[in-house]
Write a protein that binds this DNA or RNA. Structure first.
Lengths: 356, 356
DNA sequence: ACGGTTAGTCGAAACGCTTCGACAACCGCG
DNA sequence: CGCGGTTGTCGAAGCGTTTCGACTAACCGT
């Protein structure tokens, strides 16, 4: 546990000089710098994070605030985390993942000056955490968006573009009767961003193709997926494709299809939205999916945050990233419908290649 | 940003008195305490974590070191985390989840005195992180076990007990030909604890019932599961039950069974080991599973760690927790075999209730 | 040769807390 | 009544950095 003092003595310079070598806050001659670095090396010196934090009023810690419910982190969320961690580490910052459920806990973290800034995951449309942190004067970047984003920095998935691509993929395959299985009705009325935005995007995309948009909400569980499938078949018996925005429900949907003797993708094509490769390949057949740019999202969020913190650059970073279409085994040409609406392949457009 | 000084002045006491009120390190009269608390309240005082850490040489931060691979955190691992976070928060500590992949990064965290202690997840049999942290003098508790656990504190799943219960459940249902699908061969030869321990436990449990243990390794993917099923059927065509220790492979196995026209649980029963409720219910039918005591594991680990850190109590906490059997739809009486070995139900024992 | 920069270094004062030694006031006990 | 022992409080000395002002020595253009 060598201190700066020890280094200074060994290098025969003053403590402040050692500090300047470390921080680069003032110019230091090459000769001195070398002496100091050598001393550090021989003493195996590591700066004390607490002392540094106290003196500089900067903890060099940024928090990634994730509500951890019992459901666990999907591979998607994990990708946020790894991306964020890599970006922080590269900048010499520590990333602490705080599973704050408790708002007070969060407030404590913030006002104890332990966090230089924070990235918020799973942002709700009305998110009290945003206010709490702003009040505490903690720089903030969101992954996701609140309802009113004025003055806020965020990175989010470009749901509009993503849904458009997914629909285009199905339409290209000849599907006309496409059902969208969303999150729960409760989530939608609560204004949960991804649910609302994809709904709107779906309606827009389908309308753009001259098709009728059918949306079914589903609870986040296999059972919810089964129920949704039943509802979907009731509402659109002639459906040939399902677009699913619900990683849990999708397994129920697949199970339900099998039970009904409907094969994927022969009878029904399935596309999963905002899904990780890992999950997509769990299913049989592997799911055609829109893969979320998870780690990029995390990285970009932290980079933007650090720019806030250090005062470098824009205080207002707002960016959307699309998911990439990855075609696997769960989508194929529309078949069931051929008998019903043979010869109506009249829309060969709309299959723009994935942006980036 | 009121400081202790401000509080002291407002309460007309000395700074040290305020500190004692906060830490309880020395007795303070009720009258004084009240004055101080009142002052804190009116000033909305929050102690500065850095200053406190510097002066006391204790950061009040413990790390939960989790290797975050691209696979993401299962619900099981997430339960560790939430359990640990709750325990830490209850003790007034912060839990920082560090996705350290990098050993150097870990070493840095440790020697910068930023961590009072650490809980290691996903411990390998030979885990260099253990040595690195011990060297840095950071108190340590493992979730999982290294090969040599002398002098180490750990909490782990009681694989022996868990496998015994799972096997007993199947045997009770009349199954005689049970195949165990483990992690990959590579994981086993690498000595990955859960893989090795469950293998041994399985052999012991089957032998105890006078049955032949058949084990098949499987890659951690749906495809790996399919391959394993093929191998299993080749090696034991008359199998009536599969015990699976591989959350990813199990979906492949289920798919493979369906493809072969084998129904679960009519033809083949399936038990998933060390699985979370969430995942178990994703499958159709929902999986009978040994549910891991995830959040308890996390909680106990942190509690033990904090005892190390504060010097209270045993420096050497070693504890095993069993998984609980949760019967769902994927297991049923042995049927296929009835024709082959009718009337050999000779072992009605071994179905002890979960030890909890 | 001269004031004015600038590069390089130092000493000392923070930063906001904990903790130690000291001390006064009070306790019960012989 | 005097004694050791608590109890409650205070002041001051750190904890290991950063950062500011000051100082020296070289360097600039003139």
């Amino acid at each position: 546990m060598a201190t700066m003092h020890d280094v200074a003595r060994l290098a025969r310079v003053s403590v402040s000089t050692v500090s300047y070598v470390l921080t680069g806050a003032r110019p230091i001659s090459q000769a001195t710098r070398d002496k100091v670095l050598a001393a550090m090396a021989t003493l195996d010196y590591q700066p004390n994070a607490m002392a540094r934090g106290l003196a500089s009023r900067r903890s060099r810690i940024v928090g990634l605030l994730m509500p951890m419910d019992e459901r666990g982190l999907g591979a998607t969320e994990t990708a946020f985390v790894t991306g964020a961690a890599a970006a922080a580490s590269a900048a010499g910052y520590h990333l602490i993942l705080s599973p704050v459920g408790d708002l007070d806990d969060l407030r404590r973290l913030a006002s104890q000056r332990m966090l230089d800034g924070a990235v918020l995951m799973e942002v709700q449309v009305e998110d009290e955490r945003v206010g709490a942190l702003q009040e505490a004067g903690v720089p903030l970047v969101l992954i996701g968006r609140t309802g009113d984003t004025t003055g806020l920095s965020y990175v989010d998935i470009d749901f509009d573009q993503t849904v458009r691509e997914a629909v285009a993929h199905l339409v290209d395959l000849g599907h006309r009767r496409i059902v969208y299985v969303n999150h729960s009705a409760a989530a939608i009325t609560a204004g949960y961003g991804p649910a609302v935005r994809t709904r709107d995007a779906f309606v827009a995309a389908m309308s753009g193709h001259g098709l009728e948009p059918v949306m079914i909400p589903a609870e986040d569980s296999a059972a919810g997926g089964r129920a949704a499938l039943t509802a979907a078949l009731a509402q659109a018996p002639d459906l040939t494709a399902v677009l699913v925005m619900n990683e849990n429900a999708i397994f129920g949907i697949l199970g339900g299809l099998t039970d009904r003797g409907l094969a994927v993708p022969r009878d029904v094509s399935v596309v999963s939205m905002v899904t990780s490769t890992q999950v997509a390949e769990l299913a049989t057949p592997a799911l055609t999916a829109m893969t979320s740019p998870g780690s990029a999202l995390g990285r970009i969020a932290v980079e933007a945050l650090l720019r806030h913190v250090t005062g470098t650059g824009d205080d207002n970073h707002q960016q959307l990233l699309p998911c990439a279409l990855e075609v696997r085994g769960s989508t194929g040409p529309a078949a069931r419908m051929v008998a019903v609406s043979a010869g109506d392949r009249d829309d060969p457009t709309g299959s723009g290649p994935p942006g980036s």
